[in-house]
Design a protein around this nucleic acid. Structure first.
Lengths: 406, 406
DNA sequence: TCCAGAGATGAATCCACCC
DNA sequence: GGGGTGGATTCATCTCTGG
């Protein structure tokens, strides 16, 4: 319930020992850069320094602060240290020193998708959060998530025993039938968290650099604290941790060296804005409007699938005179003419000069007529392979009939 | 090409300096346990020791071996060190020492779903692979993946410029229409890889502890080597790396201290088995060694693939008068006539009355002639979609020429 | 040759607006 | 209003250039 300006090393000394349930630390990452960002309306600029004389200096800086963290943490308390790839391994060595290897709990991977850029190598798309507790007797609330769509639910309900060789097998009754066991609650939360990166357009954005999504902090707070517990963030920055704590009815203490950051934090606490990720709520599957068959056809014509356009299913990777070439796959319960209408309409706004329509249904009228009509529109009609094969087999049967009747 | 029994430290000394393109290391993890596992029929038991007097001993053991790795690696080469959570940070510190921090490339997260255990805390479901190169000038092949379903594909086809405030905006011509940029390839592969853990029942499973999925190794080999390059695995265990290298036509060297492991590796190399994964489209057993294009064609004509080396790539699921219908996909560097010869020859012995040949290459002579000839043989020639599209675009360009010359 | 700073990158996804 | 589509904005970036 307090937000303090100052160096967290000094300010933590003012806190009593064993008084905090959870510490989340998001210190500088040793990027050797100054990070700045402007608010959207260009009125304010926030920045923090992350430049150091040496790695040793940096590690020394962090270590003394971790030691204070250890002191103020309750015996049931936990600490989460947020790192990126630059120096995470050295930070974890420090944690081993201060908290002991035996109190390592998890290496949490925060994984997200992000806009890419041209880079030789793999696109980095995760950050690491180390989870240590002060003792073995740490507070932990298990969160259960949904089973993955491919899980065989029947199977997980089955009870297991060990056979004579020590292998785990399903328990069976005397008739050899599998016995169903107790009901399961879901899959316990794993250490890999897919949470969308704070979107460039999200209202939650404050203009403070390196701002974290509230959803991430909520998850951390939920698993290691109950309502009324105390959460401490010694590098609170824009105050995301405190906002999440407030939303979840936890007490909170925030410290930051920058008074701009503290001002911002106080403003956010007055009026918390949280972006509910549509993507997380609906699930990625809900955005997928194409069937596997359609995707497979699109791949075989070397096209990129488009999921959010009702008339166009994809674009060819090649273009024509700088204009995209749109693709539609005829749907079931859709005539070729209807498919053509939709494709033409949607393609107009994209400035497509050429279009491809894939026929997947065998219809009454002959292909020849359609072809002639359609080509006037710069539209190519392709038959899906199974359509071609069906037509061919029908023809073949017909011609056999002709031969035999002669 | 060689599989060696012995301590990799000694054996690597026999390799020349700068002779290897890729090293994948999967050393013991410092779990302080002896790992044993039985084959499914309980006839064999494999085990290896992972107990050490101290962490220092363990790190010393690894470090001298990493130094040999550094020596044998080509200047364009890369090393991948597979770790689990226990000691990954200390291993990375070693890598910094031997390869230098500046040659750190990626922290790859291999994430998978797992059966839950009822431990207090988060269910661990990832392992870490450190990717270092010997120099800045390392070999790297970018793999492109699909766009997120939420991506606004229409828009990313557009080109961009900076406005007067330095903000990035989409480029428009004098009429205010957006201008389209270059063609898109997809999203570069990230450093978080979702690859299913070996299903306990998978055929691929050999009974050797800590076995890795082939898909994981295939991905590593693909991004850092070309065909004919040399792959080294100093702790080859059951030989997964070597099997993957063989499938992808890379040369390989494997070393392991256990002669049981080497025997098993040699058996696997004789007859590689790759597990069928429902979660991943690629990598199904019967598709081994086929190109992506062939796979997608076989899938889209709903054919059952057959093993290679005959004239037939698969059979349609439908048949004709009780006789199978054979399919061949024209190979690169193969004329349509050659493809036809092979298909006819192989189909005769199978008693096929009908055959399907998929043309994948654009050749000189016209399709029409071929069709007439071929149909006498009860053989349907289908054009792969991209062939049809190429022909169509060529025709279209020609017809534009005609119009303008009139 | 090295470092700093300018310039190019490019997909993700929420938001706003439109019927 | 609510479903769909066009737009905006970003980088714990990445690469390249010049002194």
């Amino acid at each position: 319930m307090s937000v303090i300006t100052g160096d967290c090393y000094e300010k933590m000394k003012g806190l009593s020992s064993e008084s905090v349930d959870l510490i989340y630390l998001d210190p500088p990452f040793f990027t050797q850069k100054t990070h700045t960002l402007k608010t959207r309306d260009n009125t304010k600029e926030f920045s923090f320094e992350d430049t150091w004389d040496s790695l040793q200096d940096y590690l020394k800086f962090i270590k003394v602060r971790l030691e204070e963290c250890y002191r103020v943490l309750k015996p049931t308390g936990s600490i989460f240290l947020h790192c990126d790839k630059t120096a995470s391994h050295y930070l974890r060595v420090l944690l081993d020193e201060v908290f002991d290897m035996s109190n390592f709990r998890s290496e949490i991977i925060w994984s997200y998708k992000r806009w890419s850029n041209s880079k030789k190598g793999l696109l980095s798309s995760h950050q690491t959060i180390y989870f240590y507790s002060k003792t073995d007797d740490f507070k932990f609330n298990t969160i259960y998530t949904d089973y993955s769509p491919t899980t065989n639910i029947d199977q997980i309900l089955q009870e297991r025993v060990r056979d004579e060789n020590g292998k785990s097998v399903y328990k069976r009754n005397d008739d050899g039938e599998v016995i169903l066991g107790k009901e399961k609650k879901g899959v316990p939360l794993t250490d890999v968290w897919n949470i969308p990166y704070l979107n460039p357009k999200a209202k939650e954005r404050t203009g403070y650099p390196t701002q974290k999504p509230i959803l991430l902090l909520e998850q951390i707070i939920k698993i290691t604290t109950d309502e009324g517990d105390v959460v401490l963030d010694p590098f609170c920055g824009s105050g995301t941790t405190l906002v999440a704590a407030k939303i979840l009815n936890r007490k909170f203490i925030g410290i930051d060296a920058s008074s701009d950051a503290i001002t911002l934090t106080n403003e956010r606490l007055e009026q918390p804005i949280k972006t509910e990720s549509l993507l997380l709520q609906k699930g990625e599957e809900k955005y997928i409007g194409r069937t596997d068959e359609e995707i497979s056809i699109l791949k075989s014509i070397d096209a990129i699938p488009v999921q959010r356009n009702s008339g166009i299913d994809g674009f060819l990777k090649v273009n024509y005179l700088g204009k995209p070439i749109s693709v539609r796959i005829q749907k079931q319960n859709e005539t070729l003419l209807e498919a053509r209408q939709k494709l033409l309409k949607s393609s107009k706004t994209k400035g497509c000069m050429l279009m491809v329509l894939v026929r997947t249904q065998v219809e009454e009228h002959s292909l020849f007529e359609i072809d002639n009509d359609f080509n006037k529109e710069n539209l190519l009609v392709l038959d899906a392979f199974d359509v071609s094969i069906k037509l061919w087999m029908n023809n073949f049967i017909d011609s056999l009939g002709d031969v035999s009747s002669k």
